[in-house]
Design a protein around this nucleic acid. Structure first.
Lengths: 354, 354
DNA sequence: CTGAAAGCGCTTACAG
DNA sequence: CTGAAAGCGCTTACAG
């Protein structure tokens, strides 16, 4: 039989104060003497107190959680709808926990509607009623300080997808980009000869996730002693036309290219269009990134041969879950950086991801 | 603002009975007139009543859930430890829901300690206090009736890993074996020539999961028009020595074999031993099944080149979760058969599964 | 800074 | 078969 679980009342008796005071001390509310608070905290720990969150749910006002992610227009629609989905799914799974959601879509860029401005607005208007924030750690150096405004106010912040290591975030939930790049190299290494040319759509060097994925790919190639000739095409989401022309040129110039890999979503679509246009599908291995409707179709049609999936849905889901666990039970995550597994998707199981 | 959530008291007022009676009616407890019950159920539905499970948790006695799975001795240690793990993890995640766990390990076979006997014992001794049962649907025809004994008593049953379609189980959570077999064939189809010989360690024809996995593999080969020559070795967990000898013989006879696939865990280990013994690693593709310490090592050592992972941990986790959702909210799963996704594991990410 | 009291929405005896 | 009351372990005003 489990030992009787100890409650707020037990601590109250042990410390000769009222249950109300114990509650205030344990939850960091104002209005408890410094000595009393310490005594209560210590005895609570000594007695192994675990709050009964169900009881607390019954009467307390809702926890208000804000999720701030890019609005999914234009190039953001390849990735961020799944981040929103993961966030919303977690919130829906947790309805029983008396939670209110605030959704803050922002535009990636500067000025009105930017992440910086939207977060500033949120802080100014709602900091009093806000209990936690989840956002993406992909921001300019000068914007890091915004996160600190929230944590200074006692509002914990969890980052998803991209980290800001120097910030006071509770943790970051992200993909292991290096591992993902290695995995794709490993996959291709069994499919093409050792002297192949391989086209890498390497995205934007300044974006950490792109850079690290390429790095992982290259480190595998190097460690295994493969003699592949890697041809890299850089280019961010704003020069897709240029990237398209460059890929077309390379594919035509180099009929020996036996494999291609795009490390980001937008260029995956560009790569597939080029492969299709030149009728190269079926004659080379093409690995793309991320699940989105066009890419699912690419795989079904055999334009690409596999998808490397970094699971943004699960990243956001887990980020939200970790934040709520912290708010409800004061349980910090074990690691500051939590990695979500990446998977290789095949035509045979792509339907599972629809 | 969310509309005021309606509660047991609102229904009581609407139907002019006491809250106690509403509670009895909604939860199928004895002691409510047939007419009153129907009226209450109907108005509850009409008013869109959703029980507040947190309030109910506070006072009700714990839900008692039994998990009956093979004890992980001998050949069961390759698979079932992960089933137990998933079950226990779910129960641990749900501590806040006031749940008691009963663990029933059984021996796979007949007589004392068999699944049949252990479930009969459970039914005789605890049916009064038991609220739900999770077990494996891998049983002899004549034992199906045991499941009915539980459901007749109002104790819902969820199956994991293997289904008994004709039984009154709430649902079954399992892998999609056909898809898994197809995925492995797809993986290999990009790695070996069209005229290759492929060795299949096909397990036991009478075990549905083995049979279906092989079937999936073959259907992909056929649909893609591959000219592979498939060489199948059958044999269950009791004749591993015979299987080992047979594999050794085939590998020696046929140096053209370019790939091998074992559809079950035990024979994966046997296959890897043979491949290693003959020094064939690195010279053929070897796909094995399931994550267990020896197999993780096989992949790290390059004895096998990939692992097809059916995720028994998640199967059991999900089975337990579905059962609890049903018990706490009367929410039935959307499908009678819930499929868990299978993954292909690479050397680059096998550490994630440790 | 601290306490006493009410109440969150259910479940559980108990009384009739 | 039905109702009235107590209580689960917290949180929240309110009073001092």
């Amino acid at each position: 039989m489990p030992a009787k679980r100890i409650g707020i009342k037990d601590i109250a008796e042990a410390t000769h104060v009222s249950p109300g005071t114990v509650h205030r001390a344990l939850n960091g509310k104002a209005g408890v003497g410094e000595d009393t608070r310490k005594l209560i905290l210590d005895t609570a720990k000594a007695m192994g107190y675990q709050p009964n969150i169900n009881a607390s749910l019954l009467k307390r006002k809702p926890l208000r959680i804000a999720g701030a992610f890019p609005a999914y227009t234009e190039n953001n629609r390849y990735y961020y709808p799944y981040v929103w989905q993961g966030f919303r799914e977690c919130m829906a799974d947790m309805v029983d926990y008396n939670i209110e959601t605030v959704e803050i879509p922002y535009y990636t860029g500067q000025g009105v509607g930017s992440q910086r401005n939207e977060l500033l607005n949120l802080w100014e208007q709602q900091r009093g009623e806000l209990d936690g924030l989840i956002t993406i750690g992909h921001m300019a150096q000068k914007d890091y300080s915004i996160l600190k405004k929230f944590t200074d106010e006692g509002i914990p912040v969890v980052l998803a997808c991209d980290d800001v290591p120097s910030s006071p975030r509770l943790c970051c939930v992200q993909a292991d980009h290096i591992m993902t790049g290695r995995m794709v190299a490993e996959l291709l290494s069994a499919q093409i000869p050792g002297d192949s040319q391989v086209l890498i759509c390497a995205g934007d060097v300044d974006v950490q996730s792109h850079y690290q994925t390429v790095q992982g790919f290259e480190s595998f190639v190097k460690e295994e002693g493969l003699n592949w000739e890697l041809v890299k095409v850089y280019g961010n989401d704003n020069d897709t036309e240029k990237v398209y022309q460059r890929i077309m040129g390379l594919l035509e110039e180099m009929p020996q290219i036996r494999a291609a890999y795009s490390v980001n979503a937008r260029n995956s679509q560009v790569l597939c269009q080029a492969v299709k246009e030149l009728g190269r599908n079926g004659r080379m291995r093409v690995v793309t990134s991320d699940i989105f409707p066009e890419n699912i179709q690419n795989l079904k049609d055999g334009i690409c041969t596999n998808i490397a999936y970094k699971n943004p849905r699960q990243q956001a889901y887990l980020a939200a879950k970790i934040l709520l666990e912290y708010l409800m039970k004061r349980q910090k995550p074990l690691e500051e950086v939590v990695y979500v597994n990446s998977e290789i998707v095949f035509r045979s199981n792509v339907h599972v991801y629809e």
